[in-house]
Amino acid sequence: MNRPVETDPVELTILMPCLNEAETLAVCIQKAQGFLARSGVRGEVLISDNGSTDGSQQIAADLGARVSHAPRRGYGAALINGIEQARGRFVIMADADDSYDFENLEPFVEKLRAGADLVMGNRFRGGITPGAMPPLHKYLGNPVLSGIGQLFFRPGINDFHCGLRGFNRERILGLDLQTTGMEFASEMVVKASLARYRIEEVPTTLKKDGRSRPPHLRSWHDGWRHLRFLLIFAPRWLFVYPGLVAFLLGALTVGVLSFGGVQIGAVGFDVTTMVYASALCVMGYQSLLFFWLTKLYATQEGFLPASPRYRSIVARWSAERGLLIGLGLFVVGVGIGVVQVLRWGSLDFGPQDATEVVRIAIPSALGIMLGFQTVMMSFFSGVLSTPRREVRADAVIES
């Protein structure tokens, strides 16, 4: 979507997504306009309406705010529409429920003018009035999700989900944000962190919103959506670390017990442990393969940035090499099985010690399974990495 034609240079757009906010919209607009008048910042108030049926659009128009109709429903969709339609070089966004402080936006503007790409509010530093945030969100949801976000992406902020934030419009548009729901707030911070944008944080306050109806937010449902989003954008934490631990622990256990049972104190470990350890090894290996395929797909489609190290690995890797590795593992597994059959033949195919049979069969089966998985992964990665023509609305471009 093209940027709206500017008649006068606008430095700041104060953006509010709106879905039936007639109770509080007017006071939010008046506070935002008051800030612009008092600070001398050349700006506008933009309402990105998401299909309100309570007259919110007329309230905004009567107060002199600009109204843009978001064609798709959803919190993220309304904000994407608003960012695209904004005339300001900078955008400060917040909900239109009168919970955020539109009267004191100077710290955000100062940070943006100083070169920050994204400026996040911190409600825990600025102050949360009684009743403004449910205890579940204040003491569990926000701290846990913010801690996970900080651990995964290192944005350098402590209130990952604050709805009051400012940003450089062009830089945020450059992230090509996609999510249309509540995950949009997380996507903005995650992608800005991955792109190594300059992210800063300023204190802000949060008060109880002025609506008589319940908020749109659903605690457990939306909390899980945010957590799921963070995990998807952190494939190392989702796939690599747990997969590597499971694979190494399982493989080591199978390897040790292949030479005989182990007694630790009063507890003995033998072929039964080998069976479960081999399952752990397979699960860990699958997790590592999923990481490779997820990373390959996500970088191809632009969901995740590709680091120079990753690009160098992809350049050296080929489906053919993966096939050779997979076939090698498969042959090793089959070879162990052949040796076991030959040993059985030396006994005229008579009775064998069950424990020893299983002790040899497990490494054989493990090699066959890992080899087969590697071969299939290699074929699939070859499909994902095949050069193709990408059809777009205005052109067909060689990717």
Rank of each mutant, 00 (worst) to 15 (best):
E84P: 00
T205W: 03
G88F: 03
M93G: 12
L324N: 07
G127T: 07
D54Q: 11
L63W: 13
D222T: 08
L177A: 02
A315T: 14
E11T: 11
A78P: 05
V282S: 01
L177R: 00
D97E: 11
A37W: 09
G149D: 15
R218Q: 13
V119D: 09
T374C: 13
G181S: 08
A70S: 10
L342Q: 13
E23A: 15
L206D: 05
V391F: 11
L249Y: 11
G166S: 06
E183T: 11
V254R: 00
D270C: 03
W317V: 00
L79S: 00
T53M: 04
V109A: 09
N158L: 10
S193W: 09
T253N: 05
G34F: 08
G367E: 01
R165I: 02
W224M: 11
L324D: 00
L248C: 11
P387I: 11
H226Y: 03
K208S: 14
L46C: 03
G88P: 09
R236S: 14
G181N: 12
V314Q: 15
G51I: 12
W220Q: 06
V5N: 06
R123Y: 06
S52D: 09
R198C: 05
F153P: 02
R125H: 12
F152E: 10
T180M: 04
V189A: 02
G223K: 05
G74C: 08
L289H: 03
R72D: 12
T386V: 01
V262G: 02
L175N: 07
S48M: 08
I128V: 15
S39L: 01
V254P: 04
S52V: 06
D222L: 05
F90V: 03
V45R: 06
R38C: 01
A192E: 06
S385Q: 12
D97N: 02
A26Y: 10
Q85N: 02
S318A: 10
L25A: 03
N2Q: 11
V256G: 05
E398N: 12
P203V: 13
L293V: 12
L118Q: 14
F380L: 14
L227R: 03
H69D: 07
R87L: 14
A60T: 09
G166D: 08
V396N: 03
W344D: 06
L230I: 08
L252E: 07
L293A: 15
M120F: 05
V341D: 05
Q300V: 05
A361G: 07
A361H: 02
R309G: 05
E187W: 06
V144M: 15
G260Q: 10
D394E: 11
S99M: 01
M283G: 15
F259G: 05
L25D: 01
R196I: 01
L231R: 04
S193D: 13
R196D: 15
P155H: 12
V254E: 05
A354L: 14
W237R: 10
L118D: 13
T180D: 10
A234F: 02
A319F: 09
F229V: 09
N20H: 05
C18W: 04
I59G: 02
G350R: 11
Q30K: 10
V267D: 02
G82D: 01
D98Y: 07
L230N: 06
G126I: 08
E21H: 10
K208A: 15
R343C: 00
L327R: 02
L257V: 02
